[in-house]
Design a protein around this nucleic acid. Sequence first.
DNA 1: CTAACTGCAAAAGCTTTGCTTTTCA
DNA 2: TGAAAAGCAAAGCTTTTGCAGTTAG
Lengths: 152, 152
Amino acid sequence: MANDAFLRMTNQRRIILRELRKVNTHPSADEVYDMVRQYLPRISLGTVYRNLEVLSQIGEIQKIEVGGSIKRFDGNTKPHYHVRCMACDRIEDVPESIRFDFGDQIDQTMHYKIMEHRLEFIGLCPECAARQADRMMANIDRQIGKRVSTGI
Amino acid sequence: MANDAFLRMTNQRRIILRELRKVNTHPSADEVYDMVRQYLPRISLGTVYRNLEVLSQIGEIQKIEVGGSIKRFDGNTKPHYHVRCMACDRIEDVPESIRFDFGDQIDQTMHYKIMEHRLEFIGLCPECAARQADRMMANIDRQIGKRVSTGI
DNA sequence: CTAACTGCAAAAGCTTTGCTTTTCA
DNA sequence: TGAAAAGCAAAGCTTTTGCAGTTAG
């Protein structure tokens, strides 16, 4: 049952991990690529992808799935929630101390064996709430404010 | 401020919406394309994408973001949570009656104005839990069971 | 009528993969 | 020294877009 493959700590892998641990942002693979190129000018994007995959599989980083379709990575491996600003798309960590226990309610309703949960809050960051309220509403209106009767 | 563009209820749009309302699965754009082609053999995938976008913007369907990188769509527009089976990847709705209130705790901690939240449970569906326990563990082991010392 | 929409095909992300060379242990 | 990983480039998916023709209202 044990998998005897073993991994090497290459320079690329070490620096990707180190840089990810430095920040509390949640960079995409491409952003990680930019972050490490100052130390490894010849690293390839493929190597970044492969290492992010390996590092998340061995639990050194977290692959996070939040709104939007690109994957993001988090150097903080402790379970924690995220808040996303719906105006500027910034993602921040909710302190690990905030943790909800949903007990067996879902297990009993869905008859699933629940192992984990993912919780994301969506709202306005302080800056966007304060400074951009008007602009943002106009923007949302432009995107969403179409009207139609579906006839259904 | 109001956007005076208006939308038309075309046959394509109506049938995409109708088919999405019929099912309680959470199809991807490509799966919707397959679903509607029996009624509209000449519809294009681009049209499906465009309509899914419009329908979700006017609130007739929901664009859902769960684990995995492809977008899925839900004909159920009432707010509800999802459970995902980590073995077979099936996604099911948690009944709308199950709804948690996180109060102002996040607002006060993060100083965000929280507008909504997304909650997803990950676990084993009854079938996978019962029938595939061994096979699945072997599979997870093969994928994750690599060991390394990071030296950090 | 005419603006919105469709079908088609090409392009545009993001991510993975094949292959040869390099490197860690 | 040999298996793992890197670099490079090509391919693969999903999604978006430009355009000419079609259609709802």
